[in-house]
Design a protein around this nucleic acid. Sequence first.
DNA 1: CAAATCGTTCATAAAATAATGAACAGGCCG
DNA 2: CGGCCTGTTCATTATTTTATGAACGATTTG
Lengths: 161, 161
Amino acid sequence: MSSTLSELEKEVIEIFVRLAAGLSLPRSVGELYGLLFISPNPLCINDCMNKLKISKGSTSQGLKILRSFGAVNPVYIPGSRSDHFEAESSLRNIVTGFVNEQVRPHLENGKVRMARINELIAAEEEEERREFFEMRIGRLQGWQKRAGSLLPFALNFIKPD
Amino acid sequence: MSSTLSELEKEVIEIFVRLAAGLSLPRSVGELYGLLFISPNPLCINDCMNKLKISKGSTSQGLKILRSFGAVNPVYIPGSRSDHFEAESSLRNIVTGFVNEQVRPHLENGKVRMARINELIAAEEEEERREFFEMRIGRLQGWQKRAGSLLPFALNFIKPD
DNA sequence: CAAATCGTTCATAAAATAATGAACAGGCCG
DNA sequence: CGGCCTGTTCATTATTTTATGAACGATTTG
């Protein structure tokens, strides 16, 4: 297997590097996914680090992250001692994994905070101010709820592939 | 006007600080929006920097970013020489602005790249490899298109408030 | 069992990002 | 005009994030 990147590989990897940046994931994570996405065969850690010229640590860490939301799957290769990986190619699976891992926790956390905020508002003496606060926080809660309901909807929109 | 943050303010600001982190925007941007969101009156740069205890530079920069996608609007205050700002409270306006500024450019860019990638694939001699590449890139384009059509749809889902 | 292979972890180095505050430009008022 | 107030910019500093690679435990091989 060639240890340098083809033009095609470079181009595809760049797409995912940019995507990773947009999601504020480390660049190496984008590189790894891009490489695996366009690779006809599953690759092991050594293949990845050689082709991408990144360190073993980054490779191990990056694949761990990718596995954590199911963007990459381990593949058993008979006769090889190393773990191999291939890119999960179902967008839906990846997005679902990503949302569950990285997005939902924040939404949950927000809900908890709201309880405290509502208490604080109730304690406001001056009526006009209290009403303003209630209005704004009401809106905030509306957003939260809407985000919560948009999510499953969006996931559904990404039909089963 | 008090120059220290009330409990309520702190709590609300924290919500937006976290949100900003999620969008990988500077913390100061979250602080500023949170402060304005819960403020009954428009605030000027000096108000903001005093209450948040951040530098003039950060304040100026942060408000610039917030204005860039319409999360904050300038308000004319008769008799004051400083610009004042209030939070835009229409989620839809903010999300639309944010998507147009920070998301769409990436999608566009991706489309451009695809042209080059398709050329590269066409040049692949070995049939089996070429077919694999076509399959994967086809999928990639499917994602792109879907992301493009999900966006306006999601914006619409956020009804006019 | 000794040597080699594999993968992870973690202290450290390097790089990227954000905050600071002084310098500056423009406007306003006396 | 000259001092004063506003807000922006940008070089520098501080902070945070990411990458590196050596050390390690686990596993396999001969």
